[in-house]
Design a protein around this nucleic acid. Structure first.
Lengths: 228, 228
DNA sequence: TCAAAAGTGTTTTTTATACACCCATGC
DNA sequence: GCATGGGTGTATAAAAAACACTTTTGA
């Protein structure tokens, strides 16, 4: 069996685009790229690239993500496929969109700068080329949906974080204020966080305990964490 | 601007595979295809096909779905992309998977038969080729997730249906028994069903009112219908 | 008249929300 | 000693689940 079987089939240009989420200074941010190639040269776009021969779309996304952040094994999730024939004026390119969550403290800012990329707060995004605006919209919906059932957004925080830091992240993602007491109870009731013997003293005089996600615990909960 | 810009890029074989859900005799079923081409000739597979030039993946899915069911405008939703380089021994084919929900009463059984396709109850599926088993698993998860928040599975029933018929469909999808009284209250509280002046007398002496989905009502609810 | 599904009502349990209040401590 | 976020407890409201009971009518 070999590819000769499929030899008469049309072959498509296949690309990936990444919605790279980061969180710093209490703001949810996206890493956007200042496009230096035609078409749409000089405008802002998502970080993306073509899928090479002998690569899966996940391989391609990992390659592109490592290239721009310096990080391997970034948490990633498919959002959806964009394939309208006229979506890219440079030709029919089919793009698979990924959400990527990174700990913004860990990435390589020099790499980002050298690529002409820039972190933009989610609330003040520039106009994006092609259908990238719609991609971001879907990606945010997917992120909210995920965060509602899953602590995976902890990927956006350092390994050790306080409940208050986590709550502020949730406030940011859902654009509403969660009640501090209720949020804490709900999160701790999931039983997947482990309290450490360390306190963060930057936010209050009393200090807040750091927590981390328990080893070997499943992040797939069947319980709702927060409602939209 | 033209495709010359991207001319050095590798081009991929792009396909779609459809998980075609139908519901009859109180069983959830999938339409599977008896594969008559190499590789894996003679085995069962999902219904699929290559994406042609100047087609979006949705176009391709619609084309394939119409070809085998005779129906247009089938409800469809992306599941995810499968692109491991070794997933198809006949060559590297990237496949976009779609869930499709059809009213099994409306499809063209002759077309299905002529294509060598067959309806299989979800509980007794044959072994599927390649990664199609994993595709079905993801598709079912997606269907459950959707059905938990959305009445879209009404697509699997005739336009007019009783609450009991809808409940039995939900029982089938979630593989559990919903309480008749509570299910009825919950569904009706959504306010998206309209009672008709007709009764179905096939299931009981008393007869059950038919309902239909109200015109122009949004199917996108922010409320949970059932829990898994 | 009775079995069986349709449909309604009531009770209990669980979960979400609102909010009061004590704690610890640097200033 | 007081302002501030950390953390706990409690009261209320809303939603889910369990289940009793009434209705209808063909066999």
């Amino acid at each position: 069996m070999n590819t000769i079987l499929y030899k008469d089939q049309y072959r498509h240009l296949l690309a990936i685009d990444c919605i790279i989420f980061g969180y710093s200074n209490e703001e949810l941010k996206l890493l956007l790229f200042h496009r230096e190639i035609m078409p749409a040269q000089g405008q802002w776009s998502l970080v993306g690239g073509f899928v090479n021969e002998n690569e899966s779309v996940e391989d391609a996304a990992n390659r592109v993500l490592e290239g721009i952040t310096g990080l391997k094994n970034i948490y990633m999730e498919q959002v959806s496929v964009f394939s309208k024939t006229n979506r890219d004026p440079g030709g029919h390119v089919v793009s698979v969109v990924f959400n990527a969550l990174i700990d913004i403290e860990k990435h390589n800012p020099d790499l980002v700068r050298d690529h002409g990329a820039h972190w933009w707060p989610i609330s003040k995004l520039p106009n994006l080329i092609f259908d990238h605006g719609e991609m971001v919209k879907q990606a945010l919906g997917k992120l909210r949906n995920k965060a509602g059932f899953n602590l995976i957004v902890g990927e956006l925080l350092p390994k050790e974080f306080t409940i208050t830091q986590l709550r502020r992240l949730y406030n940011n993602i859902f654009q509403r204020e969660f009640d501090p007491g209720n949020f804490r109870k709900k999160i701790l009731s999931l039983g997947i966080l482990e309290r450490l013997n360390k306190k963060d003293l930057s936010d209050s005089k009393k200090g807040a305990y750091y927590y981390k996600i328990k080893e070997g615990v499943s992040m797939v909960l069947n319980e709702r964490i927060v409602k939209e």
